[in-house]
Design a protein around this nucleic acid. Structure first.
Lengths: 210, 210, 210, 210
DNA sequence: AATGAATGAGCCTTCATTCAT
DNA sequence: AATGAATGAAGGCTCATTCAT
């Protein structure tokens, strides 16, 4: 995961012809997301999801064959959201730093149902146990890493530094590590402020992108 | 949480007179830990824990009133272990860097029965849902942060830099963030190598402790 | 049941003015039959029947008030079909023997959508539980038995033996027993061949019709 | 299946040390048998079985891992009962005839929980759908057929007739057919009497064993 | 007449917890 | 102190049936 929110809003979805079925699926996913955030993947019950969606439990199965598939859909939605946001705007260490801090604040506010720190941690932990989930997550993770490496390279180049592929990768890995560490920090230290993180993060960015 | 393993083994406990009850509790907790690591907090069943501990399911309830209390006890045990390890050995940015990379490798090997990346993520995620757990974790988290801040200060001072308390805190926060991000990285990118992380981590340490 | 297929095709129904409703009912029954044969009375779902019939699930209820009534209708249809086939062609023990072996082979091939060994067994077993079904089946069973008794008498008479009603009955009962036993044999011993059965069956027929 | 009840009671089981667990298993199986007879394999619910056994639904799972395994156990019990009864007593066509009629009456009375006509039919029908059940049933069926073939040969030999293996098999197949037909007859014609069947059955036996 | 979305009861199964021994 | 049998409340899922359109 580790999505980078930027200032560009994602382009509006191209499928405005929302059939009833599509709308129902969406409703269920939204309810599921709420429940998963609230109780975790395992503890959230189908009944609870159905309640939250305002439908009967049985109806869910018209749209998803199993709870596992809902989980999978949620995960994929998360991963899609990730990286779909243009990274092209990140043109300087400062941009990258801001993007990370924006992500931090979004997690802290917890108002983005698509990207929630608790869910992110759950999801990551789940990789330890469910190989299918692990595969999906890791596949996406690699893409995100590649994206970050490119950004790193581009920014470095803009500053006159030519990074080898391996060097960019090293930087991207540490960036991912930092970003994902933020999820943990958000949960474990609710009082942490953007302003506290900013100074050192800026220095680190400068180092990573020089 | 985010324990820093150093070369000094923790001093042996002051050898309390281990009553039978205390020994039983310990056995149960150890078994529970194994099971939680294996299956996660929710999926681990009392029966499995009892089996692992080599006792009957019913007996657990003589020592713990509920599964939730075992979870809590496990967490508290973790947190005690944490930081009990002397941080005094960390005397340079390099030391700190090595300590972090050691932690990374230990997580990657998954051979430390007391701290496991999956469990760490689970535990952190659980804070989102269980306020009681959140409290315990955050209390301890603060202590760890304080410890780190001291280390930072000490190392900086050794290098001739006097850091204000707030400045040390900023650095400690980012350090924690990095360490915890490693848990996520270990799970999400099983192929990540210590050698890949090392170069940039060293640079970062240099920045943070300068 | 235990229908005796003979070489004469049943006379075409008097061509009733097939209303739309009647045609729909027929479609549903045919689909249901297919499904029941495929999965048994209980396991066949209304959804599957609807699919097979090429109509919506809800529509079935315009024509049948419940699944149980479909089962009943299927049974009644079976029983109607049964015995409607002329038994007049059976004029010798050999004819009867052949007819039974034909039935055996038809069951073995399983290509008769109207009568299937598994369904026959299911249906019979159901009599044990559903009194309504039991009544229908038993009523029809009596008719089949009567028909058989007549055939027996006729054949015997043709061979110069005058059988009393009770004597014909005894023979008819054993014939039914044999025929129905074939259903069981077909299912339990898929390797059984017509040629294996023929010799002894012929001898038995000779005894029964002498 | 198609058990041949003879006058010899089965030897008492050699395991009088009935552990609690063994007794519970037996209780459950007995309850299950009752329920299966009452409602069929599919329609009988675990809750109903538990009720009948006078225990909680969950407890069943301490003794059987799944409903399917209960079904399997019931089937195997049935099949064991079969043929365990000594066939050595059958020394004449009359003996065989009586044994068959005894079986008929036992089915008709429905007082033998281990061998019930409805269950027999259900079980046979189930072979059509469940390959695992089919295998078990057919394996046993072959044994029963072999046993019958031996009996046939022995009786024939006692009467001075030497039957080839294939000839004995032909007779055994028809015997099985007749016996299994009786299950159907019992269910479909509750008024059928032993005395009605006896005369023709005797003649048939004479033919089969001559 | 027809659809198919929606419901809700019921099914099999698991598991934390209790209790008689 | 210890066992492990027993319970009962969910949990995920299916399916006959109903209903708005």
């Amino acid at each position: 995961m580790s999505s980078l929110r930027t200032r560009t809003p994602a382009a509006p979805k191209p499928a405005p012809v929302a059939t009833h079925a599509a709308r129902q699926r969406e409703r269920i996913l939204e309810a599921a997301e709420k429940c998963f955030i609230e109780s975790g993947f395992h503890a959230a019950s189908m009944a609870h999801i159905a309640d939250t969606a305002g439908i009967s439990a049985g109806l869910i199965y018209r749209y998803f064959d199993s709870k596992a598939l809902i989980v999978k859909a949620i995960i994929e939605r998360h991963l899609e959201t990730d990286g779909t946001c243009a990274i092209d705007w990140l043109n300087s260490p400062e941009d990258l730093c801001d993007a990370m801090l924006d992500l931090f604040e979004s997690w802290q506010r917890g108002d983005d149902p698509k990207m929630n720190a608790g869910l992110f941690l759950d999801l990551t932990a789940e990789c330890t146990r469910d190989p299918q989930i692990a595969r999906v997550v890791r596949d996406k993770d690699r893409l995100v890493g590649d994206g970050l490496a490119q950004v790193v390279r581009r920014i470095a180049r803009a500053r006159g530094v030519m990074l080898k592929s391996a060097a960019a990768r090293e930087r991207a890995d540490v960036l991912q590590c930092l970003m994902e560490g933020l999820a943990s920090r958000v949960v474990r230290d609710p009082k942490l402020r953007r302003s506290t993180l900013k100074p050192m993060l800026e220095k680190i960015m400068a180092v990573l992108l020089a």
